[in-house]
């Protein structure tokens, strides 16, 4: 009530000024300051975000489209593209399942050690990817814990696809879970409880009630996870062994070409990687737009 009175009083005091034409919106700033701040923001975006992206494409097409095409269809490049896509195709579904399971248990149940689990999910965000790569070397390397057993059974994890997938899974683990936990916590347990009292089984409740409620958030998380899985450099670099045409993912291949002074090659693969990223971004924006509607509807409920 007091606040309301204060407001109405303030309004009453503003009115004479309004009439004399000197009224100024309290949240408004002078025109020169607005222009200066906008110019700074736009300039920063142009230099830091847009320019590098444009330069990547310019360098890629420096010797024409045919050179770009030749660089990305060269066997080693194709192998790198294929390897990156394979690693992502394995890592993303795994993390989708793990992420849903983690978010579901954290949001819908109370158990001992829940906060610890949440911290654990954030671990890959806080640990440097290089360190997480090194952990896998320690565990699976020739001198590592399981190294000898793995050699005896002729199982290759390091410097092979399994190692790359493991490193990718580790680094991209939080994306789906982090996206879903706040959403599912916000939605609460009421609908699941209602479903149980109406006779639905646990799985039935999940498929009919929980999953449809999180579908847009889930898709969004999967896209972010996929973008990172394709782009991961540090952790994969440590476990891959950089064998050309075999264990070189796209980001690693870019580095390798660049270090060999093959700039057109490096930027062509980089441009392809950037394009995959841009497609993901476009899909993400599209979803955000869709998802915003859905979230608003959910909140109105």
């Amino acid at each position: 009530m007091k606040i309301f009175n204060g407001r109405s009083l303030a309004r009453w005091r503003y009115e004479p000024r309004l009439r004399s034409g000197k009224f100024k919106n309290p949240t408004d700033d002078p025109i020169w300051l607005k222009l200066l701040l906008s110019a700074m923001a736009l300039g920063f975006i142009a230099v830091v975000l847009l320019l590098p992206l444009l330069l990547v494409f310019r360098e890629a097409f420096a010797n024409g489209v045919s050179a770009f095409w030749a660089a990305i269809t060269e066997p080693d490049s194709l192998a790198a593209v294929w390897l990156s896509l394979t690693a992502a195709a394995i890592a993303v579904p795994l993390n989708t399942v793990f992420g849903i399971a983690a978010a579901w248990s954290i949001a819908k149940f109370d158990f001992w050690g829940k906060t610890f689990l949440v911290t654990l999910i954030d671990l890959p965000f806080s640990v440097s990817p290089v360190v997480s790569g090194l952990i896998y070397v320690l565990v699976f390397g020739a001198q590592g814990w399981f190294g000898r057993d793995l050699v005896e059974h002729n199982v290759h994890i390091l410097f092979a696809l399994p190692g790359i997938v493991l490193a990718t899974v580790f680094v991209t683990f939080p994306f789906v879970a982090r996206e879903l936990i706040p959403l599912m916590v916000d939605q609460g347990r009421d609908e699941e409880e209602a479903a149980a009292t109406l006779g639905a089984s646990g799985l039935g409740t999940f498929l009919r009630v929980t999953l449809p409620n999180i579908k847009w958030g889930l898709l969004y998380g999967i896209l972010l996870c996929n973008a990172r899985a394709l782009g991961e450099f540090g952790a994969v670099s440590v476990v891959s062994g950089h064998i050309r045409g075999q264990t070189n993912t796209m980001p690693l291949h870019v580095e390798l070409l660049y270090n060999n002074y093959d700039y057109v090659g490096a930027f062509s693969v980089a441009a392809l990687l950037a394009m995959l990223g841009l497609i993901t971004l476009a899909l993400k924006s599209l979803l955000e737009w869709r998802y915003a509607d859905e979230l608003a509807a959910a909140h109105r409920h």
Binding site: D190, E191, E193, A194, A195, A196, T197, L198, G199, A200, S201, R208, V209, P212, N213, A297, A298, H301
Partner: peptide
């Protein structure tokens, strides 16, 4: 268990399936 009791439950916040 709740699902075999066949007891209809009405919640304060409705808990309708929003989708």
């Amino acid at each position: 268990p709740a699902r075999t009791r066949n007891a209809g439950f009405v919640f304060q916040q409705y808990a309708l399936f929003r989708h």
